[in-house]
């Protein structure tokens, strides 16, 4: 390597500089007092903690400059604990730095590699052991052992099978059926087209018999967003336009990217934005993706009104709602 050129010599460890406390008993005594004071501050912190825990009610607020109104109970507990711990540390380190020896010592390092004779014997012992077991010769044992080990790994996988049911086609189904009423969320009231002004948005769910016990896993697929525009604002083909009712268009609220609730509606641009990853859907063009990572539009729900004028689904969703999965296109 670069050894042919003479390198600059190592001058060795610099000379040790003594601290004042090393030779001056007064300085040493002072350092000792400082350490004791630090430990004393810690004790005061613990007292503050005990006081806050026992005597400050948790609804007292005090004003602290910069921080504003603070809960005195919480602040007292936290600061008490912080002071009590921090100053133990400060005391210990000040003690180490002023009074404990500060002369650096040198320890020697040895190469990890063993002497060659040991290595040789070690390698030989491994070889002998493997030979004695017949690892090289008895390939039948080796292979059957490998197969047995591999197979035995299946049992933990198998035993985990009952973690959950098979998905079947559940991911493709929602509660929406032809004729299901749209109800408000929250409130579970049926709605009429006239309840929604132009420009308004509402979250709806399918009407069910026992709305008090609606499962979250159903909401995770059923949530629908209603948006009302002026009918001339749409830019839809005839099929999609027929799925709207008097300017009211219904989309699955579950993002087609990763399933977040697509809850941000920009009234000016008529864009729906998912707050998770900013996929942006154009409401006037059947929730076409105009920005962000989502690859598919939000599924549109076909809606109409029943005899009394309440909004109902004319058809269930024609495609699975929510994020993609492998079998999504298969049925």
């Amino acid at each position: 390597m670069s050894n042919e050129i003479e390198a600059i010599k190592d001058p060795g460890l610099p000379a040790h500089v003594h601290r004042k406390a090393d030779h001056d008993p007064v300085a040493a005594k002072r350092a000792e007092r400082q350490v004791a004071i630090l430990f004393g501050i810690s004790a005061l912190g613990t007292l503050l903690l005990i006081f806050s825990y026992s005597f400050i009610p948790d609804d007292v607020f005090i004003f602290i400059p910069v921080m504003g109104e603070q809960n005195a109970h919480q602040l007292g507990l936290g600061l008490g604990m912080a002071i009590s711990l921090f100053f133990i540390g400060m005391g210990a380190i000040h003690w180490a730095k002023t009074l404990m020896p500060d002369q650096e010592v040198i320890a020697h390092r040895h190469e990890f590699r063993s002497p060659d004779s040991d290595r040789k014997e070690f390698v030989q012992a491994v070889k002998d052991g493997a030979g004695a077991a017949g690892l090289g010769r008895r390939s039948l044992i080796k292979r059957s052992l490998g197969a047995a080990l591999g197979l035995s790994a299946l049992s933990p996988i198998l035993l985990l099978r009952d973690l959950g049911p098979l998905p079947g086609n559940e991911l493709e189904k929602t509660t929406w059926k032809a004729g299901t009423h749209l109800v408000t969320d929250p409130g579970n009231r049926r709605i009429k087209a006239s309840d929604l002004e132009v420009g308004a948005v509402a979250q709806v769910l399918p009407e069910i018999e026992d709305p008090e016990h609606r499962h979250l896993s159903d909401i995770a697929k059923d949530a629908v967003l209603l948006i009302r525009l002026r009918p001339d604002e749409f830019n839809l083909d005839a099929d999609r336009l027929a799925m709207t009712h008097e300017g009211i268009i219904a989309f699955s609220k579950i993002c087609s990217h990763m399933g977040c609730a697509v809850a941000l509606y920009e009234q000016q641009t008529k864009h729906l934005l998912c707050p998770c990853h900013q996929s942006t859907f154009d409401v006037t063009r059947a929730a076409k993706v105009i920005f962000g990572p989502a690859a598919r539009p939000l599924p549109q729900l076909d809606i109409t009104v029943d005899g009394e004028g309440y909004l109902v689904a004319r058809n269930p969703f024609s495609e699975p709602v929510g994020p993609s999965f492998w079998e999504r296109d298969s049925r």
């Binding site: 936290g78 604990m81 912080a82 002071i83 921090f86 540390g89 210990a92 380190i93």
Partner: peptide, 19 residues
């Protein structure tokens, strides 16, 4: 002493942030 003390300092700083 240094490492032990440092544990208390880390704990103290975290407690302060949390307060």
């Amino acid at each position: 002493a240094k490492a032990g003390g440092f544990f208390f300092i880390v704990f103290g700083v975290i407690a302060f942030l949390s307060a």
